[in-house]
Design a protein around this nucleic acid. Structure first.
Lengths: 360, 360
DNA sequence: TTGAAAGCGGTACCAG
DNA sequence: CTGGTACCGCTTTCAA
């Protein structure tokens, strides 16, 4: 054995390495097994037939040396990171968790790692995303997390990109859910409960989703002959606190509002607190609606009427599309279906669900 | 210029490459700028002085070719991934979000990418973690996400590891918060409200944190001469739904319970619903307490008495420790301080906070 | 079935 | 200040 590994002009690796603290390499394993590095590679990858005995020796050597092929080297030679990235504005809240979970699940199936970047409104977000693009085989970017001007060069550099929760731009595909149509339907439903003073709480500038929802709501209100000039109530965030604040302000203004449609469930929960804090009854005095149908929607008092969107699937589909794109297939955008979930907060007692918008 | 790049034996790269669809490499840039690849590297890294004019030419060439050095190659030659990993059982809920946010913040400061792995109780979690360990410069592992037997070989292979929300094992450092002491203190406080029938809702087998909390509670109860044999109420998850179910079962048994201490705030919120659903009053009939002091704790009805732990800092400290370890420094474990937050759910109206446990 | 050798795209050392 | 070149650890022809 000793002889084998030392025969001149034979399998001896050029670099002589002392088996010390260092991480072993293919050369060490090859030497120990008395074979060439090519054979070691073949055994590990199963890419070509290897004699059973040789195979055994290689495996034994690898095991004894506790060798694991360097991912760094392998990634380098294969020109593939074996990882995909996903960019969010934030990580908190049930919506993001669900989307990420869906994405992560599909990535794990493909044995791909997931790089997560939450921009948190950092000033250098664009830089971080550009940076991330260099580290992954493909990238999913949510909503308006980064500027289109940042995405364009990345996509142009042949990095597969899939947009999430927004419209496609150029030839960059997107996965999103229906917004305007179900928002319109929900608003119409609110009107059908006899309401005429409807407010929408949310910041359309914050996300394409919200922007579309507001558009749908406004459309329905206008169709109902309602003045929408005062209907939009700003809300700087998507969590309960921001909803609560917005709710307080809304009623502090002494507004006569008999329905508040919110950009998501958490804002709605906050508004609900504010409303009841003012001694108003829901839905009798004021209707409140949410969006997403997160678990909390069924638990508020009263339970929230909302629009269910498949958050988990949103992430999963984005991942699937991304991997198809990475594998060289051409992909096209997807709009997922949503459904109205009517509960007590709009005055409906029974739950009904109606599919709206979206072609899957 | 053309001549320059073609002079024999000169700076012409051995590999002749047609400037086509391919990603440009240093060789292309060097050729275009009429310099050697060494100079290109120097310009980019600023690792050695370069003449202003040369520098300009290199930059121009890089720009024209839209060249960005390959991260794959750089990582390979530098033997560094420029990324750290973090392993969680799950991603939902405010606790994980906050911890991740803290971790991610520090990672971004170091210009390191973050690889997230949520095991979701997958059967092959250990395999995924071992896999992840090959892709990062260091790893943070939360609680009992994976078996110690999985961690050991990773740490033994010289991959920096920091444990999170659990005790250190061997020479692997950990960042955690105080549990037993504040749990003991909180339980004692509950007893001071005259309660004698105290239950603890949570699964100690699920996380070291919960295990310690239960230990502290039990200690206090026993010290108070209370029988703890029936005090532990199982709860399979950390969310509101599981808390609700556990709460229902607890009272369905016709138990005479006058205080329910929960493993976290969300479970407590669920229990609160169940309790009030049974027509019991909180805190008059039953005291309910949580843990974490997540934003929701202040919003429940009545607001939750709980134990505040610095979730964001937990993630941040883990990151800082990990980077120190990656940089070769030796690190030691940290226990972060927690504090009691007493609100109405235990019968206290005013909020008081008392630091407990932990040495920072 | 196996070995030799050519890269992958950078970094950094050594001369000049 | 600049060029030549030896790696980094692995995968993959090409020959034998």
């Amino acid at each position: 054995m000793k002889l084998l590994t030392q025969r001149a002009g034979g399998t001896m690796p050029k670099r002589v390495r002392v088996e010390g603290r260092e991480r072993p390499s293919v050369y060490d394993v090859a030497a120990r097994a008395g074979v060439s590095i090519a054979t070691v590679s073949r055994v590990l990858r199963g890419t070509a037939p290897v004699a059973a005995e040789t195979r055994r020796r290689v495996l034994a050597a690898a095991d004894e040396l506790r060798w694991r092929p360097s991912r760094l080297a392998r990634a380098f030679v294969e020109q593939s990171h074996g990882a995909v990235g996903i960019v969010f504005p934030d990580l908190g809240g049930p919506y993001y968790s669900a989307v990420i979970a869906g994405f992560e699940e599909k990535a794990a199936e493909r044995r791909s790692a997931v790089l997560i970047l939450a921009t948190h409104g950092r000033a250098n977000a664009d830089e971080l995303v550009t940076d991330l693009a260099d580290r992954v085989d493909g990238l999913v970017v949510m909503g308006r997390t980064v500027a289109d001007d940042t995405i364009a060069p990345i996509a142009a550099a042949n990095v597969p990109v899939v947009l999430l929760a927004r419209a496609p731009v150029g030839d960059v595909a997107a996965v999103r859910t229906a917004n305007a149509a179900p928002a319109d339907a929900l608003a119409q439903h609110v009107l059908s409960h006899g309401r005429r003073h409807v407010a929408f709480v949310g910041d359309p500038a914050r996300s394409p989703d919200v922007s579309e929802r507001w558009r749908g709501v406004r459309r329905a209100l206008q169709r109902g002959g309602i003045d929408v000039s005062q209907a939009l109530v700003p809300c700087d965030g998507f969590d309960v606190e921001h909803g609560y604040k917005a709710g307080l302000e809304l009623f502090a203004l002494g507004n006569v509002v008999d329905a508040v449609m919110c950009a998501n469930d958490e804002i709605a929960a906050g508004v609900l607190r504010a409303v009841t804090g003012y001694g108003l009854r829901v839905p009798d005095d004021v209707i409140v609606t949410g969006w997403d149908d997160t678990p909390m929607a069924a638990r508020t008092h009263p339970p929230l009427s909302t629009v269910r969107q498949p958050m988990h699937e949103l992430g999963a589909r984005a991942a699937v599309l991304l991997f198809e794109r990475i594998e060289g297939h051409s992909i096209s955008s997807v709009v997922l279906r949503t459904s109205l979930v009517l509960r007590a907060s709009c005055g409906c007692t029974s739950q009904q669900a109606t599919a709206t918008g979206g072609r899957p």
